[in-house]
Design a protein around this nucleic acid. Structure first.
Lengths: 199, 199
DNA sequence: GTTAGCATGTAAGGAGTTACATGATTTT
DNA sequence: AAAATCATGTAACTCCTTACATGCTAAC
């Protein structure tokens, strides 16, 4: 029965956590809450809402008084809240990927500090891997390719470098206010978990 | 018969333009030529090569001497060259989208200056629209959302601003060496074409 | 002789968009 | 009363990935 999954489900749960909403509004909020980086069409959203309803994660308060249609307000169920807690606490490799990282960050306020640090540091280590690859390929490229391709790759490299610096600031801020609960050493040493490196 | 389309086709044509290659190598080159921003699996590439062969855009020099399989070298046909010229000369709205813009830039060396300027300026105007939206939503967000969501949106905004500055440099360079062929005024005034603004 | 990397391919399915179809409500 | 925008929904389709299956070739 079409198991719901991914960023869209996560975003819906997170937004409905604040307050019930109908699909149309949900869609706009997803677009702005997730920054630039993701917008969904109704063709994705409405079927997803149906699936999630049938899974019991959300419930439709169908506001049709008489024969009218229109305005279905969705709210989170207890199961939905639980599911959201699961998702928001996930700090493994999957949560440092581009899209997933974005949603996680958007709902950071509902996580605890240890999880936040693990995700931020995980993300950073993921980007550092990418920098390695990029720098290597750029060194080789310098002699083979034209100036445009080079410019493109350099710009890409600098973007990643910028994100790393940005993460460093976030991590520093995170450590600053209240020097972290016990277990801080474990957190500091945490990342660089083995990831499936097929390729 | 499965009309081929999009970034992958474009990239294949562009790379085969340099020299014949087999699929395996094509895949690696696509990954590096297109910077970070796109990599395709074999599950996409090989079927695409088949389709393109059946369309006559590329031809398979099947190097199987006797009963052996393995190593199919693809090369561009006359039709393929023509198709590539069409694609590379396309400077309309579609070419300023993220992915499309990336491929276009990767093959900029095979375009003429007028096309390059139209694409760069188109891309810039597209990003400026995005900046507008982003700045507006950020102004509203400042009072509603938590510091993490804010940080995410600010970082997104700055990334776009950076790309605009980068484009400005590319455009300046483009204009610098040889002050442009006749028709320069038309080129300078060109962009901001009406785009389909449904939303 | 076995592991690693080169090389090609297919089937099933996931995730999302576009285009269409419909209707309610608000604004001008 | 027309136009805009709010609101919901579906069907067809596109594009791509994953997982699997196969075999060659070089290096250790």
């Amino acid at each position: 029965m079409a198991r719901s999954s991914g960023v869209l489900e996560f975003a819906v749960l997170g937004l409905l956590h604040d307050s019930p909403m109908h699909g149309y509004e949900l869609r706009k909020r997803i677009g702005s809450a997730l920054g630039t980086f993701r917008a969904y069409s109704y063709g994705s959203l409405y079927p997803a809402l149906k699936t999630m309803t049938s899974e019991g994660l959300i419930a439709a308060d169908d506001a049709s008084g008489a024969g009218r249609r229109s305005k279905i307000v969705y709210r989170l169920t207890a199961d939905g809240k639980e599911r959201f807690q699961e998702l928001v606490s996930e700090s493994g490799p999957a949560s440092w990927e581009d899209e997933a990282f974005g949603v996680h960050l958007a709902f950071f306020a509902r996580t605890n500090k240890d999880v936040r640090l693990r995700i931020l540091e995980g993300r950073r280590s993921r980007l550092e891997e990418r920098l390695d690859t990029l720098r290597t390929s750029l060194r080789q490229a310098s002699e083979r390719v034209d100036s445009y391709t080079l410019a493109l790759q350099e710009h890409g490299l600098e973007s990643v470098e910028r994100e790393v610096r940005w993460l460093n600031e976030l991590i520093a801020t995170e450590r600053e206010d209240s020097p972290s609960s016990r277990g801080s050493k474990a957190v500091l040493d945490a990342p660089t978990q083995q990831r499936n490196n097929k390729e």
